[in-house]
Design a protein around this nucleic acid. Structure first.
Length: 916
RNA sequence: GCCCGAGUGGCGGAACGGUAGACGCAGGGGACUCAAAAUCCUCCGCCCUAACGGGUGUGCGAGUUCGAAUCUCGCCUCGGGCACCA
């Protein structure tokens, strides 16, 4: 931490003073390290957080996306789980029966990579990490029902996942087919389309190759239309997420029809295409097919020139460079098709690299005049460019680029198929589809970008797919009685590829159908399968079926789901599909096909980056010459090694090793500012990463300041959906504030209960206002505003002269309102103020509406909308009374200078506007 | 290229179309102290003024309105998502 005031923990340097009346057990200092473990033990002893299905109470299920057990908790985890915990504790106090579970997304490649790098077994690595991370999370005091903890790598979990798989297989939602897959050459496994980012594997970053392979698929396409339509019903999801899902599903409306080949080729008499622009059919100049189109494949087998071209086109399609430059490559097959509207009009058939086999039918008709991609292609290969329409009021002229107007713009059709000469393209498309259908040329069709989810992975550390290969019976599902199909423990990671393939005996098994010898499937499931149903498993984590319907019926749906925006597409779309599949197979009730009622996507925790520069010369070559080049390299520093501060308006730093604490920061900086190896440059906040060394370790924070400080800090200032910057001074200020609250509690506890005072009504008004505001802001996920209100109320309470009894009451309520954010401190205050039992179990306070009304109200007075002065009137004054009071005001009289106002607008409780 | 979102003090951020800058951080001044830390008081958008007070101000430009940070239109900048999708 770069604190320039207090570099170390706030220990022996505090001035300790005992006050009369201080309780014997209470020290004068706020010491979270003593308070926090004590109250955590008290919560455990009272099993405050065990979720019980209680038919007499409303339930509330709050869930944060479960973590991958990487080995250490991150400050982002702290923010994520604290948000969930604030909601859980608040809802519990509101009388809900709350389910707030935690588990581990425990399968996946890092465990295997660790086994490869360091030896050992993925299971050992994973379970060790879980133990460490759980140990780091526990001190946060999260109100989690740990009895429901699950790890997806536990056979108890993945065995039920296998049962679910078998049910889905039976329901026709799983199939196997050969297809072109995305192959990650580094991780040596298949990736889903969603896991390919800019042509690279989402984990390895390696260029993804296209390979043909037998794959297992989930039939997500059965639900495409529904998954799209149901997004509209998700009222409490961020629009951003719904939009991303909509784009991903990718809805297109158009016409599907065939071009007849002049001569049948390799058993094909025609080429089916899909188009969203049938209105441009008379602008056709070629038909393009994908290199993987069946006709192209057949030609390839007979023609080496086609084979050479296709090989080039396939290679190019996957590389980033090809996608960036967008170079169009084509090969004229020599085949010809007839235009459906004019059988004598022949069009050439080209193989083109920009056409994808897995969208539409893998073939398009090219209309260069109205599609930029086709235009580029036609220009390169000298194909005709025939305009179908022109902008309204213009004549036909040679095109330099494709003319693609907005679909709601009216254009003038030179070569219309149907409809008026002047119409929008949306109207023309509709008319063209109707005409084509009536003439038997194709059919209106809807096409989606979303494809089935290929989920087999050639890895060890995943859920085995419970299928067998029997010579006699073929592909056979494993008998449910034999589940779980366990991963073998004796595996090696000394060679690339899947260790299950290499295992000497694991594959050998008995066919449940015929009793003969069979071989197991060695592919395992994508880890996204594991996370697609864990929320349902939490409702009955130890049931002997995937779920227990009675429990699922009580607890589902997840009322509030909280997690990162990075899961907007993959995890959330898969989970929505799984919920439907689980309903179809009888594992979830109908109400749960949309499993997450409300979704909240939180921002990241960021930190500024500190670096110094190292300059040196390095030998290099320039052509044949040996030369010296000057190199500048940034050297990153950890926050705890830097003292940051302000120097002449710029935020800069000094390395702690160079810092002389007897001098001011400016003096320190002046000593190093001309030395680039010592003067620390600070760049604004970015996502924490190990390579930039701008990481803040939550464990260190908790040790230094306590869990409550960490919790309060990550909830304050920034709205939860936005990124929050972690600053050393901010964390320290938070700690000081909590210390002040603690001292205030101490002072109020020492007051005699019968001590008289004045301003009780004002204090009670402030208290009820605070209850109302904090309640409302927590409900709205505006935790930063809730905290601002708590600061305000604390300041009021700190200044009040009210009676002892009123102050004690206000202090107890303050503890209750703070409890969701800082539960340990709240318990301590509650205890010292004589609150009954645990504040965690106390019912949430209710604001008295009568106490929210003030006696008087202050109104601003404007002249023509500009604020001039303000007046105070009794609340409930009529508009006429307010107007009279305003006109009697000295500043208003002065401002009017004898003139008569044209109009006076009175907004009750808000404003008076005098129009002159 | 297409689709979203956001621009408010030195900083994080508040503001049912109604007193812009709540609350916090940082900073200035003061009290206490031999001193420091801690604590407390106080000031704090910018410009003019000794002060009272006035002007100006929510990325830029228009518009709607008695009144716009907020609504509409057009720009600019930044961030995010998708992308040879037929």
């Amino acid at each position: 931490m770069g604190a320039k005031t207090t570099p170390g923990p706030p220990k022996a340097r505090f001035f300790i003073r005992r006050k009369p009346g201080m309780s014997a057990t209470q020290d004068a200092r706020y010491q979270p390290s003593q308070i926090e473990p004590r109250w955590q033990a008290a919560w455990d002893a009272a099993s405050c957080f065990a979720a019980r299905a209680d038919a007499t109470r409303p339930k509330y299920y709050v869930l944060e996306m479960f973590p991958y057990p990487s080995g250490r908790i991150h400050i982002g985890h702290v923010r994520n789980y604290t948000m969930g915990d604030v909601v859980a504790r608040y809802k519990r106090a509101q009388g809900f029966s709350v389910l707030h579970p935690m588990g581990w997304d425990a399968f996946g490649m890092p465990a295997e990579n660790a086994a490869m790098a360091e030896g050992g077994h993925p299971a050992t690595w994973t379970y060790n990490n879980i133990a460490v991370m759980k140990g780091q999370m526990k001190p946060l005091g999260l109100s989690i029902d740990w009895s429901r903890e699950v790890a997806t790598c536990d056979p108890e979990y993945y065995g039920q996942q296998q049962a679910l798989f078998l049910d889905m297989l039976e329901a026709g939602l799983v199939y196997r087919k050969a297809g072109i897959v995305n192959w990650d050459p580094v991780d040596m496994t298949v990736l889903a389309n969603e896991q390919v980012i800019d042509g690279k594997g989402w984990r390895s970053g390696a260029d993804v190759e296209r390979r043909e392979k037998e794959q297992w698929f989930f039939k997500i396409s059965d639900y495409t239309a529904e998954l799209l339509a149901a997004l509209d019903g998700l009222k409490d999801w961020p629009n951003k997420v719904k939009l991303q899902q909509r784009n991903w599903i990718g809805y297109s409306e158009g016409l599907r029809f065939s071009f007849d080949l002049t001569e049948a080729a390799h058993g094909h008499s025609g080429i089916e295409v899909f188009t969203t622009r049938p209105d441009t059919l008379l602008g056709a100049s070629f038909v393009g097919i994908a290199p993987d189109h069946p006709i192209a494949k057949a030609l390839e087998a007979h023609n080496p020139a086609v084979a050479a071209f296709s090989a080039e086109a396939r290679k190019g399609a996957a590389t980033e460079e090809a996608m960036a430059t967008g170079e169009k490559l084509g090969f004229d097959t020599g085949l010809r098709v007839r235009h459906p509207l004019h059988p004598d009009w022949l069009l050439p058939v080209w193989i083109a690299n920009f056409i994808k086999m897995d969208y539409g039918s893998g073939a398009v008709f090219g209309c260069p005049a109205h599609d930029q991609r086709d235009f580029d292609f036609a220009t390169k290969y000298a194909l005709p460019i025939i305009p179908v329409f022109v902008a309204a009021g213009t004549d036909e002229a040679p095109l330099t680029e494709a003319f693609v107007p907005d679909e709601s713009d009216v254009v003038h059709y030179l070569r219309p198929i149907a409809g008026e000469a002047a119409q929008t393209s949306a109207q023309a498309v509709e008319a063209a589809i109707a005409l084509c259908e009536s003439r038997g040329i194709g059919k209106g069709a809807i096409v989606y970008k979303l494809r089935d989810w290929g989920f087999s992975r050639q890895r060890y550390w995943g859920c085995p797919i419970p299928m067998l290969y029997c010579d006699a019976c073929g592909l056979v599902p494993e008998d449910k009685a034999n589940l779980p199909v366990r991963l073998p423990e004796d595996v090696t990671f000394d060679a690339p590829g899947n260790p299950l393939d290499r295992h000497p005996t694991w594959r050998n098994c008995t066919c449940p159908k015929c009793g003969g010898a069979a071989l197991r499937e060695t592919d395992t499931m994508d880890t996204f399968v594991d996370s697609s149903w864990y929320f349902a498993r939490f409702t009955a984590p130890h049931a002997s079926t995937p779920t227990d319907l009675a429990e699922a019926d009580y607890w589902m749906n997840v009322d509030q789901y909280i997690g990162g925006i990075e899961h907007a597409i993959l995890h959330l779309l898969y989970s929505r599909f799984f919920a439907r599949a689980m309903h179809k197979t009888g594992h979830l009730p109908a109400k749960s096909i949309e499993p997450f009622n409300a979704l909240f996507t939180q921002g990241m925790v960021t930190h500024e980056v500190y670096y110094t520069r190292r300059k040196f010369d390095r030998a290099s070559t320039d052509g044949d010459k040996e030369i010296q080049v000057h190199v500048t390299q940034g050297v990153f520093h950890f926050p705890e090694d830097v003292v940051a501060g302000d120097y002449q308006g710029t935020r800069v730093g000094v390395l702690k090793a160079d810092f002389d604490s007897s001098l001011s920061f400016a003096q320190n900086y002046e000593r190093v500012k001309d030395d680039h190896e010592k003067a620390v440059v600070i760049v604004s906040s970015v996502k924490m990463s190990k390579s930039k060394r701008n990481v803040v370790d939550p464990v260190a924070i908790i040790e230094q300041f306590g869990a409550d400080t960490a919790r309060w800090f990550v909830m304050s200032d920034s709205p939860p959906e936005r990124d929050v910057e972690w600053t050393a001074s901010g964390a320290e200020a938070t700690h000081k504030h909590l210390g002040r609250v603690w001292m205030l509690c101490d002072r109020i506890a020492a007051l005699p209960a019968d001590q008289p005072g004045e301003g009780d009504v004002d204090l009670m008004r402030a208290m009820h206002r605070a209850i109302a505001d904090v309640t409302q802001t927590i409900e709205g996920f505006a935790f930063n505003k809730a905290i601002a209100k708590l600061y305000e109320f604390t300041n009021t309470l700190g200044r009040t002269k009210a009676s002892g009894a009123a102050q004690k009451l206000a202090m107890r309520v303050l503890a209750q309102l703070m409890a969701p954010m800082v539960p340990h401190l709240a318990e301590d205050i509650w205890h010292h103020q004589g609150g009954a039992g645990l504040v965690t179990l106390a019912p949430w306070p209710k604001a008295d509406p009568a106490m929210l009304v003030e006696d008087t109200v202050t109104l601003a007075v404007q002249f023509n909308g500009k604020r001039r002065t303000e007046i105070t009137v009794p609340s409930g004054s009529s508009n006429a009374e307010v107007e009279k009071a305003a006109l009697a005001d000295e500043a208003v009289i002065r401002g009017l200078a004898g003139a008569t106002p044209k109009k006076i607008i009175v907004v009750p409780g808000r404003i008076v506007n005098v129009v002159v």
